[in-house]
């Protein structure tokens, strides 16, 4: 269990992490979602003691990370898969972790097996690794101490679709055995695929959190019709507010109610469905648009 409370980190006048509070629970994969520069990595670095917090706390099963005597056995951490000495081999990097944590030698091969790095690949120097291979190596290093908690920053970065599915299964299995997983991503899709709970951060603040089902269910209904104007009036008459979207309407009402209203108004529908994540996606795009260099691409 990871408990983050009122965590704040300021750099001069800039607040990178602003009063962040959330919990990542055992048995669940918690996705930490936010655009680039939202404060995800800073929050994670504070959790593991690499960056001091200005105020607030981040506890792992009630203890500060820096007070753990041999944290590798309790918390697996992957912050940046590229932060490895380019001249070391993959096997050597795992061996250093195995020795530091005081683990049996066999763990290195077990981990290489687990993340599907072949002996040849493990014998290569990390400078010759693809980003996907570095991520696999980083996951292996995080898991080598058989921890209860995983903190992974953008672990799916650089993985191909098969790799993302592999990671999803791995993390789901880890959570099902009672582990706690916190992983960050700037891609909504990745988080949707992997996470059970979602915490959304933007400009250093938490903007939404809940289970994936709840956040996606809260998204209302999307309806498309050639007579959008007529349906809009009918919905308004039924006391349902709606907004126009490309070729249709979005409303907070259930698809069931919208269907009945449309039937009553005699409006033909071309599409009627729950908004599945559209609300989350809109919110996420709104967060992103402020920092997007392409302008109003959202």
């Amino acid at each position: 269990m990871i408990t983050v409370e009122s965590l704040t980190r300021k750099y001069g006048g800039f607040t990178a992490v602003d009063d962040v509070t959330f919990t990542a629970r055992p048995g669940r994969v918690t996705g930490f979602l936010g655009p680039n520069g939202a404060g995800k990595s800073t929050t994670m670095r504070i959790m593991v003691g690499l960056t001091p917090a200005t105020s607030g706390s981040a506890l792992i099963d009630g203890a500060r990370f820096v007070d753990l005597t041999n944290p590798g056995h309790e918390v697996g951490v992957l912050l940046d898969a590229s932060a490895q000495h380019a001249g070391r081999t993959g096997r050597e990097i795992l061996t250093i972790a195995q020795r530091t944590m005081g683990l049996p030698k066999g763990r290195v091969d077990e981990m290489l097996d687990l993340v599907s790095l072949t002996p040849q690949e493990a014998g290569r120097r990390v400078r010759n690794y693809s980003l996907g291979m570095r991520q696999r190596l980083g996951i292996a290093a995080a898991l080598i101490g058989d921890p209860r908690v995983l903190i992974l920053d953008e672990p799916a970065n650089g993985l191909d679709p098969a790799g993302i599915r592999w990671m999803r299964d791995l993390l789901r299995d880890f959570a099902q055995r009672g582990g706690t997983v916190l992983l960050s991503s700037h891609l909504l899709h990745e988080i949707e695929v992997i996470a059970d709970d979602i915490v959304v951060i933007g400009h250093g603040r938490i903007v939404a959190q809940g289970t994936k089902a709840e956040l996606l269910a809260g998204a209302g209904t999307l309806v498309r019709t050639p007579d959008a104007e007529v349906l809009g009036r009918a919905l308004a008459a039924a006391g349902v507010s709606c907004s126009a979207v490309d070729g249709g309407l979005r409303t907070d009402a259930t698809p069931d109610l919208v269907g009945r209203v449309a039937l009553g108004a005699g409006v033909p529908l071309t599409e009627l469905r729950s908004g599945d994540g559209a609300g989350l996606e809109d919110m996420f795009l709104e967060l992103t648009s402020d920092t997007q260099r392409e302008g109003a691409a959202a």
Binding site: P26, G27, Q176, R205, E214, L215, M283
Partner: peptide, 22 residues
């Protein structure tokens, strides 16, 4: 902020025991 409070927690497993760490 649209915070959705989780109503029930569908916990699929019990938390793992803390182990003795050398």
């Amino acid at each position: 902020a649209t915070t959705v409070q989780p109503t029930t927690l569908p916990t699929t497993a019990t938390a793992r025991e803390r182990k003795v760490v050398p």
